[in-house]
């Protein structure tokens, strides 16, 4: 028997410390200003305190998610941890055990099957894709997809390393720390159904953005060919969008909110124009959530959706398309119809 998958609840966590784009620009040693805020649309982002890390970000986001859930932690049947960064206890990059095992214990999800999944900025949506399959086949009733991105060490290192506006580390200046969690559940009437999910990896572009642990600095270092990765992303995205729309029996103008991966306002608006030209129509709204949080990697779509819910911008029956662009090059689309979440969010916050 095939079951439907719904978003049962979602949660986020943002560290308290704010790092402004202006403060970053002030520290750059460039003869000509970068105009980062103007180009990216990012005014500020959050940064972990010395006692926060990937695990605390993920754990706090999952706790927030569980506050809105009808499930208790002991009822969670699957936990998938999806972040790129795996820093626990400062800037120690944890290889083993899997962070999902640590998270399972912290949250008290003692029944849950768990594993880590890594797919750059498409990590959480890949987790949704994989978790949904387990739910649809009836293997589990629910699945908690979680990520904690502690990535501002890349920003700190980039500030030290950048000597020219053309540096491949410029994209690292847009990053912000955050946690996000989404609880998938077997559909019951009135829930927010996942209508479609489609993913592809264009491996021939896998070296356009690469991040490693730095050999000369604490934390990570990322090198991105921004122009190239943006161009190939929007060039190849329409095929995947078409497949997902077809799976959901929808057209693009029936999508109420398109949430693309949050990199910069220029990239988002260029993508919007390209898709409008290609499809001859466009989603009702294209979401830009960059101003206060920056590019939060795998958590960016969930942060944007959470904000829409809390600001009561969504209406019952609205269809939301989550469009992922990630190093790899991964292009992914998840389409979800919003139903009961509207009643739960936007209070007490």
């Amino acid at each position: 028997m095939k079951f439907g998958t719904a978003i049962e609840s979602l949660g986020v966590y943002l560290p308290e410390e704010i790092l402004t784009t202006q403060a970053i620009e002030d520290r750059l040693n460039l003869s000509v200003p970068l105009k980062l805020e103007f180009l990216s649309g990012i005014k500020e982002r959050r940064r972990c305190s010395p006692v926060e890390d990937c695990l605390t970000l993920a754990s706090n986001a999952a706790t927030d998610c569980m506050r809105y859930s009808t499930y208790t932690p002991a009822e969670i049947e699957m936990v998938i941890f999806c972040s790129i960064s795996k820093y626990v206890g400062g800037l120690k990059h944890i290889y083993e055990p899997a962070i999902s095992v640590l998270l399972r214990e912290q949250l008290g999800c003692y029944r849950a099957t768990c594993f880590d999944l890594s797919n750059a900025c498409a990590g959480m949506l890949t987790g949704v894709h994989v978790g949904s399959d387990f739910i649809e086949r009836g293997v589990v009733k629910n699945c908690l997809v979680v990520s904690g991105e502690y990535i501002t060490s890349l920003t700190e290192n980039a500030i030290e390393n950048i000597t020219t506006r053309l540096s491949p580390e410029v994209a690292s200046l847009t990053l912000g720390d955050s946690g996000a969690a989404i609880l998938l559940s077997r559909t019951i009437p009135g829930m927010n159904c996942i209508e479609a999910s489609r993913f592809i990896t264009l491996g021939c572009y896998s070296e356009l953005c690469m991040a490693n642990q730095s050999k000369t600095q604490s934390g990570g270092v990322m090198q991105t060919q921004m122009k190239e990765i943006h161009e190939v992303s929007i060039q190849h995205a329409p095929r995947i969008i078409e497949e997902a729309l077809s799976e959901a029996s929808l057209t693009l103008d029936q999508i109420d909110f398109l949430i693309p991966h949050q990199t910069s306002k220029l990239a988002i608006s260029a993508g919007e124009k390209h898709f409008a030209d290609y499809f001859g129509s466009m989603a009702r709204h294209v979401v830009n959530n960059l101003d206060k949080v920056g590019n939060t990697a795998s958590t960016s779509h969930i942060l944007a959706l959470y904000r829409l819910l809390h600001e009561k911008q969504l209406r019952k029956g609205d269809r939301v398309m989550l469009l992922s662009f990630a190093s790899g090059l991964v292009i992914g689309v998840v389409i979800v119809t919003i139903e009961h979440l509207l009643d739960q969010y936007g209070r007490n916050h």
């Binding site: 960064s85 990059h93 750059a120 990896t201 896998s206 070296e207 690469m210 991040a211 190093s327 090059l329």
Partner: peptide, 12 residues
């Protein structure tokens, strides 16, 4: 390596 997924590099 932290990013991208190593699988995508093997594919590429």
């Amino acid at each position: 390596l932290q990013e991208p997924a190593f699988a995508s590099l093997l594919q590429g």
